[in-house]
């Protein structure tokens, strides 16, 4: 990775945020709504990328962090009648605590075992949601009432169901996470993480406590994913166990690999790409999964580092 002036990187990221802001005013209604959803899910992918891209830990259980946020926020509104900010905070807290607990256990393993252990913990989490169906709604899930999804800012109340408010809320969350990710990646801590990915033993010998560094990464990653889940519950009004199933653990992996692992903007690109491939092809044929499958294989054959990863490798070495 060539080193770039910080200004260039920050300018690019602020430019992307500005572009997304501008798009809000020109996009047709449907794509406007879809992009709001994609931004929220891109946050999920960014959280995943934190761990997978930069630390090299492949988890197959991140659906549990997403749904910790989803249920933390959703159930706080439904059962406790909490306000939107309090519920969002509850979702974050659930994700952080869960990530801390899972990290302490799962980080005793590495490689493939880490993958399986995280998958199994996520499976336990999923089954717990089913087991407490009277509270969680089980597989049917629960609706977060529209009347409760209102953000009160200084006297005015903004309905989160309003398309503009929803888009801007999603953009705000996305922007914060993007800039925080960029800051982390460029920080000393970010470099330690990459060093662990490249050679954990050597990093250890250089005197770094790799376990706590990795644990911190799991917690950051889990919290970001929970933020995405909490936002999903509050913005789109549904919590359900599907989001805790293994399929939703594989999706962020896919988005990140497509967009480019260990690139800050890759998760957004990957999510965007995948969403539009499904959306466009499902209009032409009911066998759209076939096309998605073929697209995946072609991508991995010809763009093995993902879209942004390939661009960085071939043309723009300074991309963060």
């Amino acid at each position: 990775m060539k080193e770039a002036s910080p200004a260039k990187a920050y300018a690019l990221h602020l430019g992307v945020i500005a572009l997304l802001f501008g798009l809000s005013f020109v996009l047709p209604e449907y794509h406007h709504g879809l992009l709001a959803r994609i931004m929220v899910l891109a946050v999920f992918a960014m959280g995943y990328n934190m761990l997978f891209g930069y630390v090299g830990l492949l988890s197959l259980g991140h659906a549990m962090f997403f749904s910790a946020g989803l249920y933390g926020a959703g159930l706080a509104v439904i059962h406790l009648g909490w306000s939107v900010p309090a519920a969002f905070a509850a979702g974050l807290a659930c994700g952080t605590l869960l990530a801390l607990a899972i990290g302490m256990l799962a980080l005793r393993t590495s490689g493939v075992a880490f993958m399986i252990v995280t998958m199994m913990f996520a499976q336990v989490f999923y089954l717990i949601i089913l087991y407490f169906a009277s509270r969680t709604g089980g597989d049917q899930g629960l609706v977060v009432p529209q009347s409760a999804r209102v953000l009160v800012v200084g006297g005015t109340s903004l309905g989160l169901t309003d398309p503009t408010v929803r888009y801007m809320s999603a953009l705000a969350l996305f922007s914060i996470v993007l800039l925080v990710t960029l800051a982390i990646v460029r920080s000393r801590y970010g470099r330690v993480l990459v060093a662990i990915r490249e050679n954990e033993e050597r990093t250890k010998m250089l005197g770094y406590d790799t376990f706590s560094n990795k644990l911190a990464a799991v917690v950051v990653s889990g919290t970001v994913c929970a933020a995405s889940g909490a936002a999903y519950a509050l913005l789109f009004g549904y919590v359900g166990s599907t989001f805790a199933s293994v399929q939703y653990s594989i999706l962020p992996l896919l988005w990140v690999l497509l967009g480019g692992a260990a690139t800050t903007l890759g998760p957004l690109i990957g999510t965007l790409f995948m969403y539009y491939v499904v959306d466009v092809t499902s209009g032409y044929t009911s066998a759209y999964l076939l096309i998605v499958g073929i697209a995946l294989i072609l991508l991995v054959l010809f763009f093995p580092r993902g879209i942004l990863g390939t661009i960085r490798q071939r043309w723009l070495g300074w991309l963060p």
């Binding site: 049917q140 899930g141 529209q146 789109f236 009004g237 549904y238 359900g240 166990s241 599907t242």
Partner: peptide, 12 residues
Amino acid sequence: HVVIGSAPAAGE
């Protein structure tokens, strides 16, 4: 679960 998941979108 699809009905319940889609209902909020329909209502909004």
